[in-house]
Design a protein around this nucleic acid. Structure first.
Lengths: 365, 365
DNA sequence: CTGAAAGCGCTAACAA
DNA sequence: TTGTTAGCGCTTTCAG
C-alpha cells in the first residue's frame, strides 16, 4: 500500500523540527490508529500539544487561525484522540455502564436502545453488563465496571446484594436505578410502581364486571409484586382469585409464549370458571390467547386478558391485546439526562422520578 | 481509622528537598473509589507499586508471602484497579466494541447476549454501538469506538461505508464481521450465506409439492438477498413467484407482526393462488398466520409458511412455525474467541467461519 | 523474585 | 490566547 504522506508536508512551513534529537526509549506494540498522537498533530500544526487539545475540545478558546491549522493536521494524519488517555488525565471517562439482567427478551430492549442512542449523541459510550438475575455475578461485574471509572451507572431491575449497593455508593459514581420505585435508592431513580399496576389492573377488570380473577406470572421479584398487589386488590373488591406461577427455565430467562399456553391450561384445571386474567408479560398473554383459541375459549367474551409490556406486536394480535404500557424510552431518556447533568456538575433538583404507566385498552379486555 | 503514615513517606525518602513542605500539587476531583491507588496498596503492604501490580496481575510471579500481604492490603482498602490507567500503560483496554443496527427486535439479541457474557468471563467489557441501519451515524460511532482503543470490534450486519471499513482496517484493531459471508472481509468473519438460505427454502417448499411461491420481507440488504435467491431458485424449479416488500417504518426498525398481516393481505390481492410463503422474519410469519386465520386460510393446508430466525416462541405457535434457524450463540462464541485469541497474540488459522443454518421443520410447512 | 526509572497520551493548573 | 510543567494510575523495560 503506497502511503504518499511521507515528506510532502506542504503545511508545516515554519518549524522544521525533523531533528530526531535524543530519542527516548519508546515502548513497544502500539495499536494506536497509526501511532499518531496529539503531539504529532500539534507538531504538524506548529503549536503546543495543549493548544491542539484545546482546538479539539474547546474550539472557542482558540484563535480561528490555529483552529484551522490543527484541523488540517488532524485531517492529514487521520488522528483519532485516545479517549483512554484523555479520561485518565481529566478523570472523565465518558463511559456509562448499563446493567440489565439480560438483553434477551423484549423487556429491557427499549431502555438499552434509548440509553445507547441518547448517550452516544452526548459523546458517551455505553458499556453493557448482564447479571443474569443472579447475585453471584453481580460482584465480579461490579468490579469490572468500577474499574473502568464510568461517569455513570444505570441499573435496570437488579443489584439486590446489599454489599454491591454499598460498593457502588462508596465509589462515588453517579447511579441511576430504573424499572422500580425503591424506597431507598442508592442515588437517582427513574421508575414506576409495580404495586400500583397490579391494583389498577384489578380495578379495571372489576370495573368491567369480571368477578373470577386469575394471575399468571414469572417468579422474578417485580413480577411477583405486581401479581400480589393484583390479587390483594381483586380480593378486596370481592373477586375470587386464582394464580399460577410460571416455571422459569433458567433464572435469567424471560417469560415465554409456551409458558403462557401451559399456564392457562394449569389455571383452567385449577379453576375452570375464571373470567379475567392478568399476565405478567405480553408474551405470556399471547400464549394464553393461542391456548384459549385452540380450546374454543372466547376472548374477551369468556375470558378477559391483560398483558404487561405493551410489546410492539400486541396491537396487531387477534384479538388486539389490552396491556400495561411502560414508557421505556422516557425512562431511558430521563436516566441519560440524569447522568449527563451530573457529569456537567449540575445539581439534580428531583432525583426520583415516577414515570408511571398506562393501561392500553384494546379488545382482549 | 488510624493511619500511621504521617507524611513520613517511608518508601521514597531518599531525596530530601531543601524545603520541607515539598508536597507536589495534586489534581482535583477524584472519582477514584475512595481515591485509593495501587501506590496506597503497595505502601500498606510494604512493597513497591510494581510488585503490588504483579501480585494482582501475575500472582505466580511473586512470593506467597508478598501475595498475601498485597491481598490483605487490597481487602482492607477496598482498592479497585483503574483499568483506564492500566489500559493506557499496557496498550490493552480489555474493551470490545459490539456494533449492531439496533438492539430493538429479536434479531441480534442472542449474539449480543452471548458476546457480552463470553467476553465478560474473559475479563472484557462490551461497549455497545448502534448504527441505526443508516450510514450517517457510522462515522461518528467509529470515531468514538476507535478513540477508546478497544481490543476488538464485532460488526453485526453493518458497516457498509467503504471509508469506514478502511478506517477500521488502518486502526489495526481486530475486527470480526458477522451475520453474513462477505467476499472480502476486513479481517475475520463469522457468518452464513443468505443466498443459500433462500435457495434451500425454495427447494424445501418445492419438495413439498408447492408450486405457487411468494416472498415477504423487509428492505434491508440481507433480507433482500435471501428473497432474491429464493425467487430465483423457485423460478428455476418451475414455480410461479410473487413477492411483496414490507414497508419499513423508519429504516432502523425491524419487521413487525402488523406488517406480516398487511403483507399477506397485499400478496393475496396480487395473487390469490399462492400456496407457499417465505417470510424474512418469524414476526412477519406470525402476522401472516394471524391474518390467514382471520381469513379462514388453512396453514399449512392452503398455504405453507416458513419464517426466519426461529424465535423462541415459534415452536409454540398454532400451527407450530417452520423456520430457518441461525445459531446466534455459536456466532457470538466464535466471534468472542477470535478476539480473545487475537489479544493473546495467537495466530488465527482459519479467520473465516461459515456457521451455516438449518431449516427447523414444524407444522406450518 | 523484586525494584527504580521512564513513560503510555492526554489535560489541569499555572504562568506569560 | 498560548505555552510550560506536572502529573492522572498503571505497566514496561532494564537492573539488581
Amino acid at each position: 500500500m503506497s502511503q504518499p504522506q511521507d515528506s510532502s508536508d506542504s503545511l508545516r512551513a515554519d518549524k522544521p523540527a525533523d531533528e530526531p534529537s535524543d530519542e527516548p526509549r519508546r515502548r513497544s506494540g502500539r495499536k494506536n490508529a497509526g501511532g499518531i498522537t496529539l503531539r504529532d498533530v500539534a507538531q504538524l500544526a506548529g503549536v503546543a500539544p495543549i493548544t491542539a487539545s484545546r482546538a479539539l475540545n474547546t474550539p472557542a478558546a482558540v484563535s480561528p487561525k490555529v483552529l484551522q491549522k490543527v484541523k488540517d493536521a488532524v485531517e492529514r494524519t487521520g488522528y483519532v484522540p485516545n479517549l483512554l488517555a484523555g479520561g485518565l488525565a481529566s478523570n472523565k471517562s465518558r463511559l456509562v455502564a448499563v446493567v440489565v439482567p439480560t438483553v434477551i427478551g423484549p423487556v429491557f430492549q427499549e431502555i438499552v436502545h434509548t440509553l445507547t442512542e441518547t448517550l452516544a449523541a452526548a459523546g458517551y459510550q455505553v458499556m453493557l453488563g448482564q447479571t443474569g438475575y443472579e447475585n453471584s455475578r453481580e460482584d465480579a461485574l461490579l468490579e469490572a465496571i468500577i474499574g473502568r471509572r464510568p461517569d455513570g451507572v444505570v441499573l435496570t431491575g437488579i443489584m439486590r446484594s446489599q454489599q454491591a449497593r454499598k460498593r457502588l455508593l462508596s465509589s462515588g459514581i453517579p447511579v441511576v436505578e430504573t424499572w422500580d420505585l425503591t424506597p431507598t435508592p442508592i442515588d437517582m431513580l427513574v421508575g414506576f410502581s409495580h404495586e400500583n399496576i397490579g391494583r389498577e389492573v384489578a380495578r379495571y377488570l372489576h370495573g368491567k364486571g369480571r368477578r373470577a380473577a386469575a394471575v399468571l406470572g414469572g417468579k422474578d421479584e417485580r413480577s411477583q409484586r405486581r401479581m400480589l398487589a393484583f390479587a390483594q386488590e381483586a380480593a378486596a373488591l370481592g373477586m375470587t382469585v386464582d394464580g399460577a406461577q410460571v416455571p422459569m427455565h433458567g433464572v435469567s430467562a424471560p417469560t415465554t409464549l409456551g409458558q403462557g399456553r401451559k399456564g392457562l391450561a394449569d389455571l383452567l384445571q385449577q379453576q375452570p370458571n375464571i373470567d379475567a386474567l392478568f399476565c405478567s408479560s405480553d408474551l405470556l398473554a399471547l400464549g394464553v390467547t393461542i391456548e384459549a383459541q385452540s380450546r374454543g375459549i372466547g376472548i374477551p367474551g369468556q375470558l378477559a386478558v391483560v398483558g404487561f409490556g405493551d410489546l410492539e406486536f400486541s396491537r396487531d394480535l387477534e384479538p388486539r391485546l389490552t396491556s400495561v404500557r411502560i414508557d421505556g424510552t422516557a425512562i431511558g431518556q430521563r436516566a441519560a439526562r440524569f447522568i449527563i447533568d451530573r457529569a456537567a456538575g449540575l445539581e439534580i433538583a428531583e432525583p426520583i422520578v415516577d414515570v408511571g404507566f398506562s393501561i392500553v385498552v384494546r379488545d382482549s379486555a
